[in-house]
Design a protein around this nucleic acid. Sequence first.
DNA 1: ATATTGTAGATTGTATCCAATTTTATGTTA
DNA 2: TAACATAAAATTGGATACAATCTACAATAT
Lengths: 223, 223
Amino acid sequence: MKFNATNVRASASAADLIFEALREAIFTGEIRAGEHLRQDALADMFNTSRIPVREALSRLEQQGLVKTERYKGTTVTSLSVDEVREIFEFRALLEGEVIRYAVENMDDETIEKARRACDAFATETDSARYGELNRDFHYALYAKAERPYHLKIVSQALDRIESYLRAQLVLTDGMERARREHMGILNACSSRDADKAVALTRAHILGASESLIQFLQTRDSAK
Amino acid sequence: MKFNATNVRASASAADLIFEALREAIFTGEIRAGEHLRQDALADMFNTSRIPVREALSRLEQQGLVKTERYKGTTVTSLSVDEVREIFEFRALLEGEVIRYAVENMDDETIEKARRACDAFATETDSARYGELNRDFHYALYAKAERPYHLKIVSQALDRIESYLRAQLVLTDGMERARREHMGILNACSSRDADKAVALTRAHILGASESLIQFLQTRDSAK
DNA sequence: ATATTGTAGATTGTATCCAATTTTATGTTA
DNA sequence: TAACATAAAATTGGATACAATCTACAATAT
């Protein structure tokens, strides 16, 4: 595991940088579930003391991405299939409601913005950027819901499963289906059909869930 | 602001204790919105160094209860009326879904447990304990939903508005209405009527929201 | 009188060191 | 060889000390 300082913002504290670097490393799978993270090893990697490392780990722990036990260390948490399923159910409920609010306030400018994000998603070939571009599309629409608290909770839930989504996309071809489903959601929003947008959003999420769970089960039984 | 060590668990770290003490002090209103919390002052109060204080503040910040700015300090956050309204909308959505899952799995033992919690809520005269007993009742039912992630998010949302709920209950008499509504929800669960339980839960939450918002508006305009 | 500059205090962020406990390695004995 | 006791290493939690920056107030120049 290595880190460079190219993608940092100068105004952020060391703890912020370490937090984001570790978070991204967990997302990409560079740090795998179950792996041990030792504070002084991380401090050496980032050329800091353990203090900002501890703060970063504390934040990750609160988001559920790692778990720390005194005298033992910090390990990256893994989700059971049931936990993954529950989080997708949660997303379907919440994002369905959010898209309903969004359609209420929808305007042409937002539609255009979402269309561009949809195109960017469709034309991107690097599956590692799936998560980012997927969020760009959905958030372009969700922004119009004007429900900042809801959106923060959506982000939390997405973070929790991001590493699993990326692991799947390296091996499977869900992007083509996602692209089609995005188009459908966009069209429903464009025609101000709230019920349809909700139904398609829920189906989009629950379909991804089934696909991911199947992927996890075949992967785990293969071992 | 003073703290004693009577309500501590021996196994918890200093950071845990400080976190819970500050959290409770925010809930009770002992620490008010806008108030500045300085690290070394807190360290003196708790007879520790600033290190565990910082960790406690970091956790509070991620829950949205405080906000820290470098060189300036930490202040307790306040919610606008719009933010309060949104969180109640969020709760209605989420807790409605949770009670639906719960009714699916409902059994008589859970009903009895919830009935006892309902009675305890109804007979308690100390309004300061409203929050705790209210949660006891709802969680007794929600536990049967078997959706730990959903419940964690419900808790987060409740924490965010707990101080506002308590401030209201010192001055108004929402407890009698809450008691009646709890009875209704309990009966709906007892008769396994999921739709009714959902509707009553949503109405319970949205009614409390209206009541609280009205309270906040009259209080703020009175100044 | 007003604007500007400088200085001291206040406040958070980080480094270094110490304490407490678990885990692992080592040695001893049956 | 196996079991057990003991010591050494590893690891996190916390205390103390230092660095960086903001704020407030005073001093000074215009």
